[in-house]
């Protein structure tokens, strides 16, 4: 039996036909919608490589059944840049060399955006480190990641002040 759900992906409402109830949100994005920027590192919520924003909250897409997300809104790494302009977190990751192999990077960036939206970390590097510790980076780019998150927060705050 095919299940039909409505999913808003990166701002676009899509009707998604699911012929299989076992499909995770991650596999839906990667293998059916071909949004492969979101990565699979462990498939059990341990590494954070598949982090997306689900209804605005950072979420491990591998732990979410797609069938249960009728009406939900998903933002992936592909949905951040606007008109070719990188999101401040994306730009900060480049500027601070907050990546090496790049495989965990989409998840790190989505997690960073989620963390900033949560407003819990402030400009305290220790809290940023703690708040980003659900996203593993085997290359060891953590120093740059922390710097990038702090820098992006400052850029976003400046943008809000200007607005």
């Amino acid at each position: 039996m095919t299940l039909s759900i409505s999913l808003t992906v990166n701002g676009t409402v899509q009707a998604v036909a699911l012929e299989d109830p076992r499909v995770t949100l991650l596999d839906l994005l990667r293998e059916r919608l071909h949004l492969t920027g979101t990565k699979k590192g462990c498939d059990r919520g341990q590494c954070g490589a598949c982090t997306v924003l689900l209804d605005g909250r950072r979420t491990n897409a591998c732990l979410v059944l797609a069938a249960a997300q009728d009406g939900a809104s998903v933002t992936t790494i592909e949905g951040l840049a606007e008109g070719g302009q990188l999101h401040p977190v994306q730009q900060a990751f480049i500027d601070h060399d907050a990546l090496q192999c790049g495989f965990c990077t989409p998840g790190q960036i989505m997690s960073a955006i989620g963390l900033l939206a949560e407003g819990q970390a402030g400009d305290d590097p220790e809290r940023v480190r703690e708040g980003m510790s659900g996203n593993l980076c085997r290359c060891g780019a953590y120093a740059g990641i922390t710097e990038a998150v702090l820098d992006a927060q400052a850029r976003l705050a400046a943008r809000e002040d200007a607005a």
């Binding site: 990667r30 293998e31 492969t36 790494i77 480049i94 060399d97 990077t105 989409p106």
Partner: peptide, 26 residues
Amino acid sequence: TRRDGPLKVTGQARYAADNHPPGMLF
């Protein structure tokens, strides 16, 4: 800065498992 940085921060860098040729099986 990394020349591949823009690809990697936008999800456009294509790793092996991101490929999906026509007719592909799992």
